[in-house]
C-alpha cells in the first residue's frame, strides 16, 4: 500500500529525513517510533502530501506523490498532533463539509457519516459546536475528519498526546478498528502506546530508519532476549533447578514470597510458550506471565545508541538499515 524509496527531505540545508526506504502492506498498523526531532512528523507530512520529497519516491497505492499529488491525497486521511478543526462549526456540519472537500459526493458522505460517528464514538456530540468539546472529543473529531472519505491510508501524528488514561483506552479502540479497512500509520514517542497498538514498528533516529519489525523481532535481533515477569506457585528448589538447566533461559532472578515465587527471566529468544510448558511440566503452578516493564524502552534506547555509534553495528547485529550504516 505504501512504498517509500530513498526518501530525503531537506529544510534548507538540514536533512530532516535521509534516504528512508520501507514498504507497508495493506491493512497493517505501523508505528513510527522516535525521539522528539527524530523526523517522524516530517516523514508523516510527506506521506500525507503536505510536503514534497526533496529526493526519492513515495507511492501510495501505486500513485506517485510527486506526479499526481491530488490523486494521492484523495487516498490519505491525516490527523496532525493538533486536530485541524473549525471551532465555530457543529460536529456533523464540519464532517459533512470535510467529506465533500475530500472528494466525496454529498450522498456518499451522508452514507458514511453514521459509521464514522459510531467508530469515533461521536454520536452524543453530533450537534455540539466544536469549540465546546473537550480535548478528547476534539481528537475524535480529528480522526473522524481523517476517515470520513474512507481513505486507504490513515496517518495519525501523536494521536494520544494530551489525552487522559480513559481517553487513551478509547482512542486505542478507535485506532484498532480502523485496521478493518485501512492501513494505519501512527507516530508516537510514547513507547508503551506504540507497543500496544501496532503490528510493526519503524524506528526513526536523526532522520534515518534505523530498524523495523515487531517488538519481539527487534528485541530478538538485538540479542536482548525476551524479558518476562512470572509468578509461580511451587517449591523454590524445583524452580531453581529448572531455571538452571533450561536451554531457553539466558538469565534469571527469583524471589520467594510464601508459596509464591516471583521470577524475572530473560529468554534467549521469544519462546514464551515453550518456557511456560517447562514450568508446568516441572510441577510449578503458573499464576501469571507478563512482559517485563520497559522492554520496548530498552530496545529503543539500544537501537538509537547503536545507530549513533556506527562502529558498534556489526558486533550487535541489529536489523539496522543500510542508510543507517552510511
Amino acid at each position: 500500500m505504501i512504498e517509500v524509496q530513498n526518501l530525503t527531505r531537506y529544510y534548507g540545508s538540514f536533512a530532516a529525513v535521509r534516504e528512508a526506504s520501507f514498504n507497508i502492506g495493506d491493512r497493517e498498523i505501523v508505528g513510527f517510533l522516535g525521539l522528539n526531532g527524530a523526523g517522524k512528523s516530517t516523514m508523516l507530512r510527506v506521506l500525507a502530501g503536505l510536503q514534497m520529497p526533496s529526493a526519492g519516491k513515495v507511492l501510495i497505492g501505486g500513485v506517485d506523490a510527486t506526479e499526481a499529488p491530488d490523486a494521492m491525497r484523495r487516498r490519505i486521511g491525516f490527523l496532525p498532533e493538533d486536530p485541524p478543526l473549525y471551532r465555530e462549526m457543529r460536529v456533523v456540519e464540519f464532517l459533512r463539509w470535510v467529506g465533500q472537500v475530500k472528494g466525496c459526493t454529498r450522498a456518499a458522505v451522508e452514507a458514511e457519516l453514521p459509521r464514522v460517528m459510531e467508530t469515533c464514538q461521536l454520536l452524543d456530540a453530533a450537534d455540539k459546536v466544536i469549540a465546546e468539546l473537550s480535548h478528547g472529543y476534539r481528537k475524535r473529531v480529528g480522526i473522524a475528519q481523517a476517515i470520513i472519505h474512507k481513505p486507504e491510508v490513515v496517518i495519525l501524528d501523536e494521536p494520544i498526546s494530551g489525552l487522559d488514561p480513559r481517553q487513551i483506552v478509547e482512542m486505542r479502540k478507535v485506532v484498532r478498528s480502523l485496521k478493518k479497512w485501512a492501513t494505519v500509520l501512527i507516530s508516537s514517542h510514547i513507547l508503551s502506546e506504540i507497543a500496544q497498538t501496532v503490528d510493526r514498528i519503524l524506528v526513526i533516529h536523526k532522520g534515518r530508519i534505523v530498524a523495523e519489525g515487531t517488538e519481539a523481532q527487534l528485541s530478538g535481533s538485538l540479542g536482548t532476549g525476551t524479558r518476562l515477569q512470572v509468578v509461580v506457585r511451587g517449591k523454590l528448589g524445583a524452580c531453581e533447578d529448572l531455571l538452571g538447566r533450561s536451554e531457553l533461559v539466558e538469565d534469571y532472578k527469583l524471589e520467594a514470597e510464601g508459596e509464591l515465587i516471583h521470577l524475572a527471566v530473560t529468554l534467549r529468544k521469544d519462546d514464551r510458550e515453550a518456557f511456560v510448558r517447562e514450568l508446568v511440566e516441572a510441577g510449578l503452578g503458573v499464576r501469571s506471565v507478563q512482559d517485563a516493564m520497559g522492554e520496548l524502552e530498552q530496545i529503543f534506547l539500544e537501537l538509537t545508541r547503536v545507530a549513533a555509534a556506527p562502529a558498534a553495528l556489526e558486533s550487535k547485529q541489529v536489523p539496522v538499515r543500510k542508510e543507517a550504516e552510511a
Binding site: A48, I76, V98, V101, G103
Partner: peptide, 14 residues
C-alpha cells in the same frame, strides 16, 4: 495561525 490549513493542504483540493 489556527492550524486548519493542514486540513486543506492534505485534501485533494488544488
Amino acid at each position: 495561525q489556527t492550524g486548519t490549513i493542514v486540513l486543506l493542504d492534505s485534501s485533494p483540493l488544488s
